[in-house]
Write a protein that binds this DNA or RNA. Sequence first.
DNA 1: AGTCGCTTGTGAACGTAGGCACAAAGTCGC
DNA 2: GCGACTTTGTGCCTACGTTCACAAGCGACT
Lengths: 217, 217
Amino acid sequence: MSEGRAIPEATVARLAVYLRVLGSLSDGGLSTISSEALANAAGVNSAKLRKDLSYLGSFGTRGVGYVVQVLREQISTCLGVTEHRSVVLVGVGNLGHALAGYAGFGSRGFRIAGLFDADPRRIGEGISGLTVQGMDELAAVVAQEAVSIGVIATPADAAQEVCDRLVAAGVTSILNFAPAVLSVSDNVDVRKVDLAVELQILSFHEQRKAAGLKAVL
Amino acid sequence: MSEGRAIPEATVARLAVYLRVLGSLSDGGLSTISSEALANAAGVNSAKLRKDLSYLGSFGTRGVGYVVQVLREQISTCLGVTEHRSVVLVGVGNLGHALAGYAGFGSRGFRIAGLFDADPRRIGEGISGLTVQGMDELAAVVAQEAVSIGVIATPADAAQEVCDRLVAAGVTSILNFAPAVLSVSDNVDVRKVDLAVELQILSFHEQRKAAGLKAVL
DNA sequence: AGTCGCTTGTGAACGTAGGCACAAAGTCGC
DNA sequence: GCGACTTTGTGCCTACGTTCACAAGCGACT
């Protein structure tokens, strides 16, 4: 199966999870693993896992399984996180602070190249080794550090403007934590994480469980 | 279309977004809206929006559109957020702090009924009007405040244990921010948010864009 | 009251994703 | 070297989700 094949979106999301799980397993000293075992550790069906991996090529050994190290390299290459990728973070409020201090980014292939905020009172503040800069500096940092990903952690009403500035500066992928719909041109990818939406989805299922219970009574 | 019909998972996620968008529109004084306009504001296709709404029943008016207020009530009811739903948050580190202070929960149907942490040094700390409690208090709070949703914002290695304790206390839905796969019994719903995974998905698309560019050259 | 224009609600077609089950391909023991 | 056993890679089928396109329904205007 060649590298040229289009990889489904759903598969990409799972590959990232496999990579994380493989990291722990590898730290535990495991050198090879079967699809069954890895699938269990990642919480998916083993057939689905094999199909996912088959998009990257076929480098498992029948009767044995996969070599953990090889798998990590293949997935890292596919996801483009073989060397660290630079990101900028805009909005250093509550959530922005937490993100800036999140160790998981560094250990999983990302480097925060800059922190930005529109509020003059926050500029100059130091957060985990970085200094918060004003929005005027954004374009220069993005260009100089070859940043391709921007993270938006501003209030909703500022999100679209920040997004536009990021795109203007050359960013082509955006991770948006603000509860707002962003409109961007086709060549820019946006992923959104809305914490309240996640809770509401869970709430829906709770609602269903409660309704089901009532029906039984 | 009756309430009894099963609502697809994908639709539920979008309903939460519609509800958010309707909130802003309603604040802006709008009283009715067409599927086309709402779809634009929510960033989806209008046919999809109509189909989504049709799962709740049919209360649009042909030639006119939907009454904003009615729509909000219908969606709120469906999602089970007509009155505030209580949640508990476990893990008051970097991210936990941010979540505890997030105003969006309150305004979108949720109330934080308790903050918990295993670290004795954090117990007693006050965060946005609440006091951090020890894990021993968890079960009592869950029972007393009728909490059905738990949020895990601990390090990965503590996540499974915290999850088990939440379930034992009676929580039936979990939102997991820890980069770990949780195993739970079938009657418990888990949603996970992994910040690094989100970035890796964006990274993948960047990788593709770069590869495409190279192919052109 | 009748007609016209607009918008909903939905059937039908299409595309994507998931899961089973099995042949192919390798290892290990003898 | 050979046979038994293990595990991969994948073809096929089913289920889910998305999009199109249009008939049915409602209000506004005459």
